[in-house]
Design a protein around this nucleic acid. Structure first.
Length: 568
RNA sequence: UGGGCGGUCGCCAAGCUGGUAAGGCACCGGACUUUGGCUCCGGCAUUCGAAGGUUCGAAUCCUUCCCGCCCAGCCA
């Protein structure tokens, strides 16, 4: 197997996983002529990173092997599904960088064929209409350790079953009156094989078929058949469906032959530290207002990651690094952050912004004068060019960059010490002005060395630190939203108490940060690296009058670690 | 104490036909640096859930045991 790079994406992480290996081998052995996969979301919620793992696997492996991946909506339960989700899912998959061409399918488009196949099942005696209530069926099913009992209706004749099933479809019975069941084995140790329900009567408006149907197929019946109808070769799903595979094979086997004959392969779903991934919990966060919506930047949803400024390439890289296996894994959130930083480091233009402003007065610099300093847009990408940043006598610097009483190894501004102002001059702190009443530092004062202007020979002088700044007269005020992990613990409490673990500091809004003027024209979605701080993205709430930036992720902060260590 | 599936470094994960433990993240050193960023160099499992056994040799084969996850929707 060659280790060629695919479509420009850098290979990362381990080699082929067991799913890719199997698909490749099926292709090599001639078992399948071409690989066909599918991503089959139910349109009843928004996609999240866990889905991204599946999307990258399904679309990725198909592309790598010269096959194709279908987008299929598993819309067999109209009571929970809505068309708004369909649009959201399509957008998210597309945004992640995948293309399903004209292969967009819906289980609901197969309702007629599925019904006809169900009739075939009834004809061959492999399915029957049961008239037990839901409670009775549950009671008859037995338990994990005791076999189930056969329904008194299990022996109904084919003609009666055909008649009943047709009348179910015709709407002659109320919801729940009857159900179509597979006739397999009520004593099977695998509960999924104890005559599973294939069809239920359900009067609910379907987002695509309207009121054309009042009976709907169950997942275990519709899914394998849709795979077969679409010519899927490898039906990749998550571990909890492992027990369903015998049923999947049963359905496929009853109604074949199929060419190709689809096979189900299961892998472990993604779990990430400091967040929750279940649909129910995410919905609760939104419904209860713990976050601003499905696309709140703290949410692990695709919409949340997008709004937060996470590039799709970073998500793809992350997915390639986590691997695919059958082990229940809890991935460290720092791995996602790593992928995000790596991508943004390459692509995000740099800019200077001060989040917690402290006035710095350069006493030796003439009042009213403005010098344009040349700044590099992206040291990782020379083609990004340079820009000019205005320098004046009064600047904003970061509060963290000045310490009247510095700890050891503090390389920033302190009384009597020198520091370099990025792309400008080396300045020396001459003192501070304090509020006589509170003792609060009002401003820091310094003088500059005019010989050290950036680019001049004298600028090569070594100074311990370099800090960023923004000209006070030119600063653009902005709201900056600092996000942190949504939960306090790696595994937010299970059950309903996960809400107790919410991190109260997951969002800090800074109402008046100071940005360099070049940031004024930034558009929603644009990402920047605010030098020495982190990566920030323009939020959709942003307006020209009031820019709003979201912190995607901070830069690695070695000093923070050192300082932390010093404090013990 | 029914069935299914897992258990290799703090977190992931290669290792599948036995030959003497890849890689990534994290972490710890150091170099470089007009971002305490990036980059670079170095460190980081005598051990593979446990115990036996087979073998010249086992994470890889056999046996037993332990731990974890999933399944009793007319959800997917």
């Amino acid at each position: 197997m060659s280790r060629e790079e695919g479509s420009g994406e850098r290979p990362a992480g381990p080699g082929p996983d067991f799913v890719r290996a199997r698909a490749a081998s099926d292709l090599a052995s001639g078992k399948v002529r071409a690989v066909r996969t599918r991503f089959p979301p139910e349109p009843n919620g928004h996609l999240h990173v866990g889905h991204a793992k599946s999307i990258c696997l399904n679309f990725g492996l198909a592309a790598e092997l010269g096959g194709a991946c279908n987008l299929r909506f598993d819309d067999t339960n109209p009571s929970k599904e809505e068309v708004e989700y369909v649009e959201s899912i399509r957008r998210d998959v597309r945004w992640l960088g995948f293309d399903w061409g004209d292969r967009e399918f819906y289980a609901s488009d197969r309702f007629e064929r599925l019904y006809e196949d169900a009739v075939r099942l009834v004809r061959k005696g492999a399915a029957y209409v049961d008239s037990l209530s839901a409670d009775e069926i549950r009671a008859y099913r037995g338990t994990l350790t005791e076999p189930g009992r056969e329904s008194p209706h299990r022996g109904r004749g084919v003609e009666e079953n055909l008649d009943l099933f047709a009348r179910m479809r015709a709407g002659e019975f109320p919801d729940g009156a009857h159900v179509l069941r597979a006739r397999i084995d009520m004593a099977s140790p695998n509960i999924n094989l104890r005559d599973p329900t294939l069809y239920r009567i359900l009067r609910s408006h379907h987002h695509r078929t309207g009121d054309a149907w009042c009976i709907y197929p169950m997942y275990d019946y519709a899914h394998p058949l849709c795979d077969a109808y679409e010519g899927i070769t490898h039906s990749i799903c998550t571990l909890e469906f492992e027990d369903h595979r015998p049923l999947y094979d049963w359905v496929i086997g009853q109604l074949g032959p199929w060419e190709p004959r689809p096979e189900q392969i299961e892998f472990a779903r993604l779990n990430l530290t400091y967040t929750v991934m279940s649909k129910r919990k995410l919905l609760q966060l939104v419904r209860d207002g713990h976050v601003s919506g499905w696309d709140d930047p703290r949410m692990p949803t695709i919409g949340g990651l997008r709004r937060r400024g996470c590039p799709p390439a970073a998500i793809r890289d992350f997915c390639s690094r986590i691997g695919v296996s059958k082990k229940d894994a809890l991935i460290d959130a720092s791995l996602l952050e790593f992928s995000v930083r790596e991508e943004l480091n390459r692509t995000a233009p740099r800019a200077m912004a001060v989040i917690r402003p402290l006035k710095l007065v350069v006493e030796s610099f003439p009042e009213g004068a403005v010098e344009e300093m040349e700044a590099v847009n992206n040291p990782e990408d020379p083609s990004a060019g340079t820009r000019r940043v205005p320098f004046t006598r009064e600047l904003w610097i970061e509060q963290d960059d000045f310490r009247e009483d510095p700890p050891k190894k503090f390389f920033r501004l302190t009384p009597g010490a020198e520091v370099r102002l990025r792309y400008a001059y080396i300045v020396k702190c001459t003192g501070v002005t304090k509020d006589p009443a509170t003792g609060e530092i009002l401003e820091v004062r310094c003088t500059h060395d005019p010989e050290t202007r950036s680019g001049s020979p004298q600028a090569a002088r070594k100074v311990k630190g370099t800090i960023h700044w923004v000209s006070a007269a030119h600063a653009v005020g902005a709201e900056v939203r600092l996000y942190d992990r949504l939960f306090r613990s790696e595994r937010p409490e299970e059950s309903g108490s996960f809400l107790d673990d919410l991190n109260p500091l997951s969002l800090e809004v800074v109402p008046d940060a100071k940005l360099e003027p070049s940031l004024a024209g930034a558009k929603p979605g644009d990402s920047f690296q605010f030098e020495r701080l982190g990566y920030f993205c323009v939020d959709p709430d942003s307006t020209d009058a009031r820019p709003v930036f979201d912190r995607t992720v901070g830069l690695r902060d070695t000093w923070a670690k050192v300082e932390q260590a010093q404090k013990g």
